[in-house]
Structures are given as structure tokens and as C-alpha cells.
């Protein structure tokens, strides 16, 4: 390996932080295209810089969201890169764009949840191990070809996001901004439908109102997903109040 080539590899750190400009950036990008080792390293270092960014998080002014949503509504999405014979298959291409976006969104949500239930909190981690789905299970649903997403509002406060795959008969449930329940109460998730009511899981005590991701399996046609508030010991049938109900 020449000295020049050795030097190239050491630019991964500066490049991952955009601490490189002009000719250096262009040169390193040419190197990256042909060096799998550097490409992998840059990707993994960017997971670290992404956390440096998250640590600065502040809510933008609410008007910004309106402006961005309005601008997005008027902006055409790019088709996926390198789509062979895309002509005459527009429907497929467009559908794929949407699925990719849902995927990106859901992956972001899972990452955010992982951060909130982070590695430092032993109690949370145990709950993750026991009550919550492994990230592989979650990822399997999110990457299903027929993955679709629904969002809804929880009575009393909070939003629910569901990504489901009917072909896998599974869904991933997450909630944000859930209102706290009295000490003896817990949220519980159910599948209800022609086949009867089945408990999915008690939702672990929410952390800043975030809950999930939880995987529910065994979806059947005509099922509803129901969220109730129950005594912390759980019940065999859903009681009241029903906080959220959606037909799947």
C-alpha cells in the first residue's frame, strides 16, 4: 500500500463530520466508491455523529411544520435510483417510493425508541427484553413488502403509529405522548374481532409517554387493534375505557 493510499483511509473521521472541503472531499468520495472498508467505517462513524446531532435537539417553531408540509405537498418525489425498465411501470415505482418512505420513517421511530429506552437504564432494558419485541422482529415487519402504516389519536392524549403486514399477519405498535395512568393502571393492547378478543401485551410503563415497539402476531381478517386502560395485573377480557380502536 502506498503512503498516499494509507493517507486516504485516515480521512474517514474528518469526512464523517464534514470537516473536509473542496478537493479533499471530492478525492475522498472517489476513494470511498472503491473502498468497502472506508465506506463501512464512514457509515458506522455517522451513527456516532448522528447522536451528536440528536444531543442538540430543539423543537423548531410550529409554523415551520406547516411550511414544510405545504412545500412537500407541492414537491414531486424522486423515483428510486437505478430502476431498470421503469417506463410503463410507474405504478410500481411510485408504490416503492412510498414503501421506502414508510420504512425510513419507521426505522427512525425505532431508533428514537431505542435511544429513549437506552442502554443505560437497566429497568427499561429488562422490560425491553421481556415485554418488547426484538429489533429483528420489528425490522421484519417494517421491511415486509406489503407494509402499510396507520396513525391515530388516543383518547385522553397521545398518538399511535402502527406498521402492519397482512402477509406476515403481524403489526408493530408504537405510541407517543401517552398520558400517565394512575399507579395501579396500565395500558393493555388487544386484538379484537370475529375470532374473539385476544390480549397482545401489557404496555410497559411509558417513558416520557413513549411506548413500544410491540409486535402483535396472528392478525386475522376483520380484526381491530384496541388499547384499554386496565388494572396493572391485567385482565382476561378488555374492559373500559377504550382509549384507541382501529380496524386493521
Amino acid at each position: 500500500m502506498s503512503k498516499r493510499e494509507r493517507d486516504e483511509h485516515t480521512l474517514a473521521g474528518p469526512y464523517a463530520m464534514d470537516a473536509i472541503s473542496g478537493p479533499d472531499r471530492a478525492r475522498f468520495e472517489r476513494h470511498l466508491a472503491g473502498c468497502g472498508e472506508c465506506a463501512r467505517e464512514v457509515a458506522s462513524l455517522r451513527e456516532a455523529t448522528s447522536r451528536l446531532a440528536a444531543a442538540t435537539a430543539i423543537s423548531p417553531p410550529p409554523e415551520l411544520k406547516e411550511r414544510v408540509m405545504a412545500a412537500a405537498a407541492a414537491t414531486r418525489q424522486q423515483p428510486p435510483a437505478a430502476e431498470p425498465r421503469a417506463v410503463g411501470r410507474r405504478w410500481h415505482a411510485r408504490r416503492r417510493v412510498r414503501i421506502r418512505l414508510v420504512l425510513a420513517v419507521a426505522a427512525a421511530a425505532v431508533a428514537v425508541v431505542a435511544v429513549l429506552f437506552g442502554v443505560n437504564n437497566g429497568v427499561m432494558r429488562d422490560q425491553l427484553n421481556h415485554d418488547q419485541a426484538s429489533s429483528q422482529q420489528v425490522a421484519a415487519v417494517l421491511t415486509a413488502r406489503d407494509a402499510t402504516m396507520k396513525t391515530g389519536t388516543v383518547r385522553g392524549g397521545g398518538t399511535v403509529t402502527i406498521v402492519m403486514s397482512h402477509s406476515m399477519r403481524q403489526l408493530v405498535f408504537t405510541a407517543a405522548d401517552l398520558r400517565g395512568l394512575p399507579a395501579a393502571g396500565r395500558y393493555e393492547l388487544w386484538l379484537a374481532g370475529p375470532a374473539g378478543d385476544r390480549p397482545v401485551t401489557m404496555i410497559p410503563a411509558s417513558h416520557h409517554g413513549m411506548a413500544g415497539p410491540v409486535v402483535a402476531s396472528g392478525l386475522r381478517p376483520g380484526d381491530h387493534l384496541v388499547l384499554t386502560a386496565e388494572p396493572s395485573g391485567g385482565t382476561s377480557r378488555p374492559t373500559t375505557p377504550i382509549m384507541f380502536d382501529v380496524i386493521l
Binding site: 440528536a54 442538540t56 423543537s59 427512525a108 421511530a109
Partner: peptide
Amino acid sequence: FLYDQVAASVFG
């Protein structure tokens, strides 16, 4: 949904 998840990090 994506906006709600990432806007604060982006703006920050």
C-alpha cells in the same frame, strides 16, 4: 410522522 421524529434533531 417522520417530521415529528426528526425535525428537532435537524433544527438543533
